[in-house]
Design a binder for these strands. Structure first.
Lengths: 154, 154
DNA sequence: TATTGTTATACTCTATAACTATA
DNA sequence: TATAGTTATAGAGTATAACAATA
């Protein structure tokens, strides 16, 4: 249906338009699902960052997701106030705070991962496996060729 | 490089992650290019809406891009203050305002279109034509199957 | 001097909902 | 009553830049 007019609409000529259209749908659905648990996408990304490495720090997260240290500080404030993250001054360097997940967060994270899996599955299972593989290959190729690094938040 | 670890990162397992990563890169680059002309993406979409139909109205734009009438009203305020859009009360129904582009806007729009074309080209020309066609087909298939309608702004 | 992290401030974007005026 | 559009208000999210503590 979308191309029944031959993409006459000037916007629809662009691949970037279709990328955005589809990407927004998946991401917004995920953001809504997370919001039911009072978690923002930025918080979800931060939790994953902390979970997946031994000594996560505020600066490392900022670099990784391409946000300022100030913004990350606020995200960590929220996670701490929800009892999900604790900040402990590093023994090596007193300026540095080592971040870790609380017991509650370790219990919560698998549920959030299940939500993410379900969201992705719901959206992409309408394609067969070869289409999904083709899409993944094309997206990774673009990411590689343009050397995209920041983990997407928005 | 991105999959050298076999996508061990829990986020990277999701196709939605790669969609977002790539989509943000294209969209942010476009937003920055528009910003050089003091135009937001929402304004660009509104300008195109008005340009591509005879009697565009505020409500129609709101429906089309999935924003509230209040938000669209502000976007039109900005476009009007920039001398790009004029609002004229409809003869048929005095509640309705017919929107039209000013002479300045008609001069500007082709330049903005060129910026959009260049941005899309820069990003996707790293793929060969068959890859681009495949990507377009996959994205349109997803948009069709999920009946996505709103023109993406964010 | 440089770096880690926090904070004060401001800005952009958008929603909600009350409002005016027409119909 | 319903609709088109505006406006007042509020909230989320993020950047900038100054700051304190530490290296």
């Amino acid at each position: 249906m979308n191309d029944i007019l031959g993409n006459q609409n000037p916007l629809e000529r662009h691949l970037g338009y279709w990328m955005r259209l589809v990407s927004n749908e998946v991401s917004n659905a995920f953001a809504r699902a997370l919001a039911d648990r009072q978690i923002s996408v930025a918080e979800w990304v931060a939790l994953n960052h902390i979970a997946s490495r031994a000594h996560s720090t505020s600066s490392a997260i900022a670099t990784s997701i391409g946000m300022t240290r100030g913004a990350v500080s606020k995200i960590l404030d929220k996670l701490e106030s929800k009892g999900l993250v604790s900040r402990v001054a590093s023994a090596d360097d007193n300026r540095v705070q080592t971040l870790s997940l609380t017991r509650d967060a370790r219990r919560l994270l698998p549920k959030l991962t299940a939500i993410a899996d379900a969201n992705d599955d719901h959206f992409f299972s309408v394609l067969d496996e070869s289409d999904r593989n083709a899409l993944r290959a094309l997206l990774q190729k673009l990411a590689d060729l343009h050397q995209i690094r920041d983990i997407p938040i928005e």
